[in-house]
């Protein structure tokens, strides 16, 4: 625990130093204020937008989309991995699909998605799913394939059902890799979401955090742009350093 606290203290000091350097650069007036706003302007823009409420709704909207994508992607990835685990030929097919599709950036298929699905949340969701399913499958497959064969064999001699094999053996024993897959899925979907929203401005009724950034840019609100970046950074840190750390600890305890 003290290690963790140390980490937070170190990070806080680094952040303070960064803010301090930023303010010095601002005070030197080397760049126009439209390019380089002061930290107070940025914080003011952030607080104002948070108080107005719309930004909160946009953050919620983005996070909701990510959760939907993660849950759907996770279920699909688990299913694909399990089917691949059971059948050699499906596994080969899956490997080929992954080799073809995984390197394809989500943004690259955006024009195609627009033609097929149109614009809006469904399109964003599709691109997010594409971004997360393949790395998740790779990770889950690694987990399942690394399980000691002794467990599987002894289970099979006990004439175990498919569901039992999956739920009681494969799933729990590959949990660390599944978690790793979830982490990759999270960061991939986060990036896919923000870039699609920004490039295309494809929006729902209010849009998400990417649209917020885009709007700030078109109205030349530089402090607002930085405020959006801060929101993105804070959410990322929260998910990665708090949510995932907690989940990891919980899994270790259970195992």
């Amino acid at each position: 625990m003290s290690g963790l606290r140390n980490k937070y203290i170190q990070r806080s000091i680094s952040v303070i130093i960064l803010i301090f350097l930023w303010e010095i650069l601002y005070k030197l007036q080397m760049f126009p204020v439209q390019l380089f706003p002061s930290t107070t302007q940025i914080i003011k823009a952030l607080v104002e937008d948070l108080m107005a409420g719309k930004l909160l709704v946009q953050i919620g909207h983005s996070l909701l989309l990510i959760i939907v994508a993660l849950v759907m992607g996770f279920i699909i990835a688990l299913f694909l991995s399990y089917v691949g685990y059971l059948s050699k030929s499906i596994s080969v097919l899956l490997d080929t699909l992954i080799a073809i599709l995984d390197p394809l950036p989500g943004v690259a298929i955006l024009p195609l998605v627009i033609l097929w699905i149109g614009i809006g949340e469904k399109a964003i969701l599709f691109i997010m799913l594409h971004s997360i399913i393949w790395p998740m499958v790779i990770s889950i497959q690694t987990g399942m394939n690394n399980i000691d064969k002794v467990y599987i064999e002894s289970a099979k001699t006990n004439s175990i059902t498919h569901w039992q094999l999956f739920w009681c053996i494969l799933f729990p024993l590959s949990l660390p890799q599944i978690m790793a897959g979830l982490k990759i899925g999270w960061s991939r979907s986060w990036r896919a979401l923000i870039s699609t929203e920004m490039i295309f401005g494809a929006i729902g009724s209010l849009g998400g955090i990417g649209w917020y950034l885009f709007e700030k840019r078109t109205f030349m609100n530089t402090p607002g742009m930085f405020a959006g970046l801060i929101v993105i950074i804070i959410i990322s840190i929260f998910i990665e350093d708090v949510a995932f750390v907690k989940m990891d600890a919980w899994i270790k305890e259970k195992l």
């Binding site: 627009i114 033609l115 149109g118 614009i119 809006g120 295309f200 401005g201 494809a202 929006i203 009724s205 209010l206 885009f214 078109t218």
Partner: peptide
């Protein structure tokens, strides 16, 4: 809340295809 940011040529295509 209905706005979508699109370049004119893209929007023209979209309108022609009568999609979203």
């Amino acid at each position: 809340h209905l706005l979508v940011a699109m370049k004119h040529p893209d929007a023209y295509q979209s309108l022609e295809s009568q999609s979203t």
